[in-house]
Amino acid sequence: MSANHDDHHHAPDGHGRALRLGIGGPVGSGKTALVAALCRSLGPSLRLGVVTNDIYTTEDADFLRRAGVIDAERILAVQTGCCPHTAIRDDIAANIDAVETLEERFGPLDLVIVESGGDNLTATFSRGLADRQIFVLDVSGGDKVPRKGGPGVTTADLLVVNKTDLAPMVGADLTVMSRDAAKVRDGKPVLFTSIREDKGAHSVAEWVVGIVDAWHHEHAHSV
């Protein structure tokens, strides 16, 4: 993964580089499916890169490569030494290295998605790594999860509640989830998805296009 880039680091303030979008959430909530869906929806119009933080193997990266939604070489996998939250919050060095490697190999890029390893409700991305972040829950984790809050649920720029198709089967009340999420999120957006039914996660993709446009606008003079 080595790249000759030690002397052209991108400015920490974001000028001249892609928007970095973190996607976090508990194990099995659909983070990788969401990344694949976003690649499907956004690939034709945006220049993308993806970094995965697999817990054990390169399974998530392999899934994305097999899905064929993005060129295989535009996906890099980072290992996290048993601690996925450390790699996205406390010691982001390996992730930054992967992001910058992608930008140097394929840049300029519009969007680099960093998918965290599946973790718990307290895992959020450092601002040093992600400019914006999405937290992904699923209805089968229980409709009490939004009420329980935690930094992922309360502070993420977008909360996605996935697998709504399963709600009747697991007895999850989407109205309760929606009301509780609104209460703890202070007006920040929440989107309900069923990526199994909507392979492009179109509502989420639309939100991402909005933040990428805003980012370009904000940093327009140097991109």
Partner: peptide, 9 residues
């Protein structure tokens, strides 16, 4: 805790 990637080795 030095944030230089050592935790993953």
């Amino acid at each position: 805790r030095l944030p230089a990637g050592g935790h993953a080795h």
